[in-house]
Nucleic acid binder design. Structure first.
Lengths: 129, 129
DNA sequence: CAGTATCCGTCTCGATACTG
DNA sequence: CAGTATCGAGACGGATACTG
């Protein structure tokens, strides 16, 4: 990712921005939020996730799960049965984070008209050039 | 980006996740938040931004500015002087969004110990393998 | 001053065959 | 069932010469 906050000298602007960027990175990417949403509803198994999130490859599913687990947003529980059973569950931490994300959503809904208008105006300008 | 919410059939999990992903994408990436932070303090000129955000290339600065402008988070004002002067200012929309981002920050600070612990435990496990 | 155009390396991501 | 290993395509980002 290369968004370490402390490897190079930073301006004060970056000092303020960096911790925010780190959190955003944590849930950025195509799949993280979908998996989080699925796991928050109730604990889910690997194959179940594959079905809940159509389009995701095994590779990305595993990578995303590992990252979320590493950050303490998911727990991974292995039941040593045959065949194997693994469950992923959202942590309290993840639920709280999700609360903040829905806060963002509220912002988006309130500003949807502004955003659409801004885009249309911008695209019109670009097209004119 | 390729995170359109409506081009392919989606599961209900994805329907819930997609609008959130869109907002996150809006401010994801290495530079967006830094530029936002700088512009929220007060309107800034291009070269000023180059100094405020050390390490950014001209290319990325311009690209990021254009994206933020397109989404209505920044306004771009050209003063037809010689030499040219261009100012970027944060919109109200951007200020509100930033408020939500600091909300995320508050979450991160409260959970910093959990995250560190989760990472250490996870990394220890991986190292053991 | 405020950009644009170009070139090129890197790194992410998707598809898929294979395994305990 | 729940993954890992491998490969290749493409997006992303950095450096920098050039311009109105």
């Amino acid at each position: 990712m290369a968004n370490e906050c402390d490897d190079v000298p930073m301006s004060d602007v970056q000092v303020e921005a960096c911790p925010i960027v780190q959190i955003i990175d944590r849930v950025a990417g195509k799949w993280s939020v979908s998996i989080l949403v699925a796991a928050i509803r109730n604990p889910v198994r690997y194959t179940e996730l594959e079905r809940s999130v159509p389009g995701i490859s095994r590779r990305m599913l595993t990578l995303t799960l590992r990252n979320l687990e590493r950050d303490g947003l998911l727990t991974r529980t292995v039941y040593p049965t045959v065949p194997p059973k693994v469950e992923y569950a959202a942590t309290d931490s993840a639920r709280e984070l999700y609360g903040h994300l829905t806060g963002l959503l509220e912002w988006a809904e309130r500003h949807r008209p502004d955003i659409i208008e801004a885009r249309e105006r911008y695209d019109a300008l670009v097209a004119a050039a």
